[in-house]
């Protein structure tokens, strides 16, 4: 991996130092770390159980309830923190699958080209055409009982039984989400592989794998990272839509998407419970903002042209 003669490496030397010198990246990292930390350890500092109802309905934000309370008198602050768990997990899983499967699929399809490309892209079109709703319904029907038994078997995983449907949902969304990424990467590779540096690399006798990983992939980082940061909110909102149809979270459980749709249901021009929408949306926007700044900083740090 580290021959001194290579001019293109998967991680350019000094990328991490460059990333850490970037002040926005540091701020974004701290914010993201804070959100993840709250999601993981939040339950330790709650004053209220996010799933416990109380008589205090629709209280506006106060020192008692930082983000107010909802229809069932549940504390919105602890629900937003609780919701971060599911939403971040869904987003992370979607992004990971999209990155590994989508990128490699698109790279191969675009680079090999010809008939292979044609067949691979037609497969993507078939998968894209099947409504994701059907895939989720069938997957939950087929795997939920088995997964539930399996989770019940050990004491550690027993607490996860209530989340069986969500786990299947996350996997399904991940499996669907890579399709657009594959097409974008493939389109870029079609253009890049005709450029002279690829020809030069071939002339130098480099293998196809090496050209894909060392020459094409670094030139794709910008588009890949930006599309990944866009995938995360898309998957988070998909989850809320499917949960709304009863295919994911059950009622007392919370995700940012389900909080938004719950909030929307009780708000109308007469009853202006703005805090039910503003705080979940703000949590999501803040996460996305941090992710995007971090993404841009990673792109800059990995830019093959940035090394001087």
């Amino acid at each position: 991996m580290n021959e001194p003669t290579t001019t293109q490496a998967t991680t350019p030397p000094g990328a991490i130092q460059r990333l850490l010198r970037n002040r926005t990246a540091i701020v974004a990292l701290i914010v993201l770390g804070g959100i993840v930390g709250l999601a993981l350890f939040g339950p330790l500092i709650f004053r209220y159980n996010p799933e416990a109802t109380s008589a205090a309905q629709f209280r506006p934000p106060s020192m008692e309830h930082f983000f107010g309370t909802d229809l069932n008198g549940r504390d919105v602050f602890s629900r937003v923190i609780q919701g971060a768990r599911i939403s971040l997990l869904v987003g992370l899983c979607g992004a990971l699958v999209s990155f590994f499967v989508g990128t490699s699929y698109g790279l191969v399809s675009g680079y090999v080209g010809g008939r292979t490309d044609n067949v691979m892209m037609r497969i993507v079109e078939v998968l894209h055409s099947i409504p994701r709703l059907i895939i989720v319904i069938v997957a939950i029907f087929t795997f939920a009982p088995r997964l539930e038994n399996w989770l019940n078997a050990t004491a550690i995983t027993k607490g996860l039984v209530g989340y069986t449907k969500v786990i299947i949902l996350i996997v399904c969304l991940g499996l669907i989400e890579w399709l657009a990424m594959a097409r974008i990467v493939r389109g870029q590779v079609l253009a890049l592989k005709e450029q002279q540096f690829v020809l030069a690399a071939r002339a130098l006798g480099q293998s196809h794998i090496r050209i894909l990983l060392r020459h094409l992939l670094p030139n794709l980082t910008g588009v890949i990272i930006v599309y990944l940061t866009l995938t995360i909110p898309a998957v988070i909102l998909d989850e809320s839509f499917l949960s709304f149809l009863g295919l994911g979270l059950n009622d007392p459980q919370a995700s940012w998407g389900s909080l938004l749709s719950d909030g929307k249901n009780v708000i109308n021009p007469v009853k202006n419970f703005w805090w039910l929408l503003v705080f979940p949306a703000a949590a999501m926007s803040l996460t996305l903002l941090a992710l995007n700044f971090l993404g841009d900083a990673i792109r800059d740090a990995l830019d093959p042209r940035a090394r001087r």
């Binding site: 809320s240 938004l260 749709s261 929307k264 949306a281 999501m284 926007s285 996305l288 903002l289 995007n292």
Partner: peptide, 22 residues
């Protein structure tokens, strides 16, 4: 421009639609 873009992505259409109507 980029902040606006992120806001547009993170607020679902079932919120923006009624807001525009309002």
């Amino acid at each position: 421009a980029m902040f606006g873009a992120l806001a547009a992505i993170s607020i679902p259409t079932f919120v923006t639609g009624p807001a525009l109507v309002l």
